[in-house]
Design a protein around this nucleic acid. Structure first.
Lengths: 225, 225
DNA sequence: TCAAAAGTGTTAGATTTACACCCATGA
DNA sequence: TCATGGGTGTAAATCTAACACTTTTGA
């Protein structure tokens, strides 16, 4: 072996994708039945092995793309999970990534094709191996980053009502918040911009639609709602 | 091969330790000259390969213990770094860990034995491969966690003055803060406890020594100074 | 006696929280 | 006409930020 590190052992490395969406007023997760032995049939995150010619980020994007047909999705590394016996079959280190998608952009045919389900993060079934830990770490990560990055909008359509935005906030933070105070805060954020369009889906009266405007990010260093 | 995953390729996985200490009023980093080819001789974090029978956390603890003789050090995973060409020799994925140590507990003979140096995070020399990114991610991680975890105390002796504590705060957050406001905040935190002892090292007049008291953590969910 | 670090309160301004009713519409 | 979700303002309380002088002591 013509290797610098030949004396050390290699291991399998995989990625697992934690795919968050927002629907039915809740934060939801896309999970499926594991396709491989061991653990075949258990509820599981979707994952894949890392190939020699791709980074972890590339592997995660590939898996996500296979599963959703979507590219340019917001994704972020959650962390590496490496308990020696975490995989019941072999020694595999897995790096979790979380993705935030707008469920309206997601092709539900793909979901059925792969046998995936959206489940509320509040009521997850038991998951394969350490996948539940991964999910919990991912939520912790989202909460820590949400004050410094405009994350909410990844879970919403381009046009959204303030009530939707508030529900996303509440779902991620896990706490309810006063409607008037919330709207007061939104008004101070130049990067959330009112349109003249009205959404008639969710109420008889109709609600003004807003949009996220990247161009107005410049000055604001806080996205704290 | 009697393997579930035999069709996939394995990779080398290493850990790298970002060892923070606080001295000379600054946040410092323990780095050394890389011992292996390729890159031998460059300034580098200290690392090691993960063995088949240890988790990443165990590997990082092992490396840290080899280097410092210290156990039960505060450590935390920073993230996995996996650009395909990050290692100039072979494909290696590395998971960075950061450790916070009290430099007074550290045996300086070990430092000299391994040829390590403490360098200020403000003025790092060029580091091997992506190690500088690792350090930057680690500092970002510290800043995000410091409001929810009592991290400061890991960098200080058991007994410390308020001026020292303030300097640790300033070094991590990268901003200066008003002394009176800082002390006001400390007074509201039950887990920072005044002793009757006086430190005479740092001033003629002497300064009261404080200690961190885990037992008083219970109620407080914020460590925001 | 003086240099160097320790220690100490007040006030104005900004931010946060609590709180309740009217509006527009489609069924 | 009524049920449903949309939309709005104020006041009290809390928190934050700015600010300067006195104390102690060893050299």
């Amino acid at each position: 072996m013509t290797s610098y590190y030949g004396e050390y052992e290699k291991v399998w490395v995989s990625v697992d994708c934690i795919i968050f969406g927002f629907d039915h007023g809740k934060l939801e997760l896309l999970i499926g039945r594991r396709q491989l032995d061991p653990g075949r049939g258990e509820w599981s995150l979707y994952g894949g092995f890392v190939a020699p010619d791709e980074s972890l980020e590339e592997a995660a994007s590939r898996v996500l793309h296979d599963l959703t047909g979507m590219k340019k999705v917001y994704m972020r590394q959650v962390g590496a999970f490496s308990a020696v016996d975490r995989d019941p079959g072999e020694r595999v280190i897995s790096v979790a990534f979380c993705a935030l998608i707008n469920v309206q952009d997601y092709d539900d045919n793909l979901r059925r094709e792969y046998g995936l389900e959206w489940v509320s993060v509040q009521s997850l079934p038991p998951l394969y191996s350490d996948h539940r830990m991964m999910v919990e770490s991912a939520i912790d990560l989202l909460r820590r980053h949400i004050a410094t990055e405009p994350l909410y909008f990844n879970l919403l359509p381009d046009l959204f009502t303030l009530t939707q935005l508030q529900h996303v906030y509440e779902a991620i933070m896990g706490e309810e918040i006063d409607k008037r105070n919330f709207r007061k805060r939104v008004k101070t954020m130049q990067f959330i911009e009112q349109t003249r369009l009205i959404d008639k889906q969710s109420s008889r009266r109709g609600a003004l639609l807003y949009r996220f405007n990247k161009r107005n990010l410049g000055s604001s260093s806080s996205f704290k709602l």
